[in-house]
Design a protein around this nucleic acid. Structure first.
Lengths: 123, 123
DNA sequence: TTTCATACTTACATTTTTGTGCGTACTTCT
DNA sequence: AGAAGTACGCACAAAAATGTAAGTATGAAA
């Protein structure tokens, strides 16, 4: 039944064949991290997200939100009104990963001066 | 003394001018996350890291380790012996961020089947 | 009436990332 | 003797990420 099998039974991000690797890349992507962070403050519209995430382009934000939605971290609610109205919010699962990401961000922000002080010049 | 100042006093990853943003990108980079994870198991040599991180090229691993070292998360110890011998390990600060990254990875691995099951098809 | 805002998409251009070999200096394994 | 392992740096090329500008349908504000 399962000769030499059991390759992808236990998720392992270190294995580049494991799908968890891609999901990890999605949440740790340049804009993915930030999108999850701002969504912790609750439901928000596209333009609001864009304003709060310094430096994102519309294209990248849209794309990022889409993959995060496909992974089930974000819920997208579109109202069929004439000037578009779309709301984004975290799913329960999205909330737990957002918390982890948040912890990481806080950790870095909190140690920033320590990091900057210890930063080595060039190679 | 400090008229309209106070722009970069409080680290904020949402601000693309804030240096914390770059540091965050370093640790959440494609290979940075994984390097921190495997280094949690203790001091390791370059080739060992390469073997454990599925899919990294020598070039990328070297580059990743360098930036993480510059940020003060990794300590590099090179022995001037004839066949090169270099060891990498986490600094105290590196250990705390590695823990956060680890928590995130575990969270994703643990919910992987839930994620895969809920994944939306195409757009 | 001209402009702005909304939430994107698409085409095109540029930038960044990543990969692929090659070279090194010397030892050990075959 | 020839091959492999070590820890990379370097040059070149291909691939992926990201940015820019323009377009959409319509209501509201100037």
């Amino acid at each position: 039944m399962s000769e030499t099998a059991s390759q992808d039974q236990i998720p392992d991000v270190l294995n580049d064949k494991c799908p968890s690797r891609q999901v990890l890349n999605h949440v740790t992507s340049r804009w993915g991290v930030l999108a999850l962070l701002v969504l912790q403050d609750g439901t928000q519209r596209f333009s609001m997200l864009r304003r709060r995430i310094g430096g994102v382009s519309e294209r990248m934000l849209a794309q990022t939100l889409r993959v995060l939605e496909e992974d089930g971290f974000i819920l997208r609610r579109a109202y069929p009104v004439v000037p578009p109205h779309v709301e984004y919010e975290l799913t329960p699962l999205g909330r737990v990963v957002a918390e982890k990401v948040h912890a990481l961000a806080l950790c870095i922000e909190g140690n920033l001066d320590h990091i900057l002080r210890a930063q080595k010049p060039r190679g």
